[in-house]
Design a protein around this nucleic acid. Sequence first.
DNA 1: TAAAAGTAATTAATGTATTAACAAAGATGG
DNA 2: CCATCTTTGTTAATACATTAATTACTTTTA
Lengths: 140, 140
Amino acid sequence: MRKFEDSLPLQLLRAREATMLFFRPLLHDNSLTEQQWRILRALYNYKELESKELAKRCCILSPSLTGILKRLAQQGYIQRRKCHEDQRRALISLTDKAYDLFERLSPEVEAAYAAFINRYSEEKLEELMSMLKELSELEP
Amino acid sequence: MRKFEDSLPLQLLRAREATMLFFRPLLHDNSLTEQQWRILRALYNYKELESKELAKRCCILSPSLTGILKRLAQQGYIQRRKCHEDQRRALISLTDKAYDLFERLSPEVEAAYAAFINRYSEEKLEELMSMLKELSELEP
DNA sequence: TAAAAGTAATTAATGTATTAACAAAGATGG
DNA sequence: CCATCTTTGTTAATACATTAATTACTTTTA
């Protein structure tokens, strides 16, 4: 059995934790969880997504997403409409309030990203992102 | 604002999900969660750890660890003793039952790891691990 | 040495993850 | 057409994540 620290899942987790140290305070100061921010980002990029697609893009399972969307809706950040062609599907989009929040926060998030790159390295980041992308497309 | 998919935290998450697809079924078949397995691995490697050290190594916050250890103890997989020098500290270790489980499972886990490497690449894995290790030591 | 400050671990409250089971709308084959 | 199967989304139950607050014990400091 390989040594404890030589586990890829563990190192991915640690790397993510180290990265999130740059962003977590910012999200916390604005009463947003990581998942909520992921969803805001996804919806800002894609305007409108159906629940299943949103879940896959954000790496959130459907049952989790149900609850997260319910809370986001209560706070007035998202709206949903039923798809006419297929009554099962729900189409999710951001409210104006969410757009405002997003555009207020994104400069700060970008600044944190810049601080991260300054501390790490633009080249290493590109290299790492490319390796991660390839890995994430792997199937058992 | 950078494109949604160009977020490092997201790519780290996706990469981890893709990796866990190789291991999750195995753990699930043995009624173990990821966190429980991480703790078993850590304790197998280090024989005995105090709670705080265990939490840091496993990337688990103390309040979460409290619950996880309680359940592991109920199932008879761990034992704890108080530190004599400092009565606040708890020293955790595996029971014989846990050692048996671990030694029964570890060949299968290693086989899954081999399948992963076969599907990915030994060299890429080494490269990636090295980059992740550097990243995880980064501080804001 | 008694009070203050600090640390390890837990509890509490809320939010998310995971699996299984389920309801409802749609696709499919007889 | 209708029974069946599939898919989307939800609910339920349990486990874990996160922050704040507490408890019990140590160390510092006045």
